Simulated assay, not measured.
Amino acid sequence: MRNEKPIVELRRLTKDYGGVRALNDVSLSIHEGELLFIVGDNGAGKSTLVNILSGAVMPNAESEILFKGKPVRIATPKQAQGMGIFTVYQDLSLCNDLNAFQNIFLGNELTRAARLNHESMERRTRDLFGEIGSNVPNPSAPVGTRSGGQRQAVAIAKALLLPSKVVLLDEPTAALGVIQRKQVSKLTRSLRDSGHAVVVVSQDLDEVVKSADRAVVLRIGEIESVLEGGTFTRDDLVAHITGIHSS
Rank of each mutant, 00 (worst) to 15 (best):
I104E: 01
T242S: 04
G84Q: 08
L218Y: 05
H245C: 11
H196F: 15
V20S: 15
L98Y: 15
A159R: 02
D193K: 13
N96K: 11
P172Y: 08
S164C: 05
E32F: 02
Q183Y: 01
D213E: 01
A175I: 05
I244K: 15
R11F: 05
S211F: 12
F37I: 03
L49G: 05
K68M: 12
R126N: 09
A155T: 03
V72T: 05
V57P: 00
N103L: 05
K210E: 13
V184E: 00
Q152W: 06
F105L: 04
R2Y: 01
G43C: 10
Q180M: 12
K68N: 12
C95E: 12
A22Y: 12
G69N: 08
I85R: 10
P172S: 04
V57M: 03
G43T: 11
Y17G: 05
A141D: 14
G177H: 10
G243E: 08
S54M: 10
P6T: 11
N42C: 07
G195H: 06
Q150V: 07
A153G: 09
D206C: 07
V217L: 11
L187I: 13
N51F: 01
S164D: 03
S202Q: 09
D25G: 08
V178M: 09
D235I: 06
D25T: 09
R146A: 07
L94V: 02
R12N: 14
R126T: 12
D235C: 01
D204T: 01
N138P: 00
F105W: 12
V217Q: 09
C95W: 06
E64M: 07
T76Y: 09
I52F: 04
N117D: 14
E32D: 01
N3V: 05
H245W: 00
A159Q: 07
E64G: 02
Y17L: 13
L35Y: 12
F67K: 01
P172K: 01
V208M: 08
G230V: 04
F101E: 12
V198G: 01
G55P: 00
D97V: 15
T145P: 00
S93W: 02
